[in-house]
């Protein structure tokens, strides 16, 4: 397919992404593309350090209240957590493929893959909703709101504080990610992306992979080892 795109020469090539022009302050398209990607990588750094604070809290309180963490983590549903892991990895996979099809000028395929990614993200949130409502029903809430009585260990509330903060902030990132994916899906429908210009697809993809990456750590830490 890409060979076909490359075969399109001169005049025909300008039909790809007709709205795209290199911004006046960049010398060429490659510079603009690289600048955007560097910007996104720097942004991902800030995301890592934002979550980092919670990982730090997790490490400290786990070492302080190990029995509480072990007992509390048994109240998380690892089947639901596992399903969400697979859902998120799949969405990462389709997102990566969406970038690839955008690179290859396969507009319809890009749309389809983005739509699947969006569906996976929605499914992730639905599962999360059932998990949350179950926790709230059982009184497994953070700190001062913790009401479940049948706990032998001392500080399960701290575990749930970290659980809700981590998964909550992660969930907000999923919602933001859905907005971004929807945005590029609509732009793709308007023929904006092609092998000439697909930077927004790639950059939203990078963000989406980071959301997956954070979950790759959250799942074993919270659901499996506690």
């Amino acid at each position: 397919m890409s060979a076909k795109a490359e075969a399109l020469g001169g005049a025909e090539e300008t039909k790809l992404s007709p709205q795209f022009h290199v911004a006046h302050h960049f010398d060429k398209a490659d510079t603009q593309f690289d600048a955007g990607r560097m910007g996104v990588w720097l942004f991902l750094v800030t995301e890592i350090l934002l979550f980092g604070g919670l990982f730090c809290a997790f490490a400290i309180f786990r070492s302080k209240y190990f029995p509480s963490f072990v007992e509390a983590h048994h109240h998380l549903d690892r089947v639901m957590g596992g399903i969400n892991t697979i859902v998120l990895i799949s969405s990462s996979f389709t997102m990566a493929l969406a970038v690839r099809s955008a690179q290859k000028n396969e507009k319809k395929k890009t749309t389809l893959l983005l739509a699947i990614t969006l569906a996976c993200a929605a499914m992730f949130l639905v599962v999360k909703y059932f998990e949350y409502s179950h926790k709230i029903h059982d009184g497994l809430l953070p700190g001062g709101n913790f009401t479940a009585a049948d706990f032998a260990s001392g500080h399960p509330g701290i575990f749930f504080a970290i659980y809700f903060m981590m998964t909550g902030i992660h969930g907000v990132h999923v919602v933001i990610g859905m907005g971004l994916i929807l945005w590029i899906l609509l732009r793709n429908q308007k023929n904006e992306f092609s092998s000439r210009y697909y930077a927004p697809v790639e950059n939203v993809g990078l963000y989406w992979h980071l959301v997956d990456l954070v979950w790759i750590y959250l799942f074993p830490l919270l659901y499996l080892v506690g």
């Binding site: 302080k64 953070p142 700190g143 001062g144 504080a161």
Partner: peptide, 14 residues
């Protein structure tokens, strides 16, 4: 707002 307890010594926070 919600007394999550991570910084509250009465709830085991630091």
């Amino acid at each position: 707002a919600f007394h999550i307890g991570i910084f509250d010594p009465t709830l085991g926070g630091d």
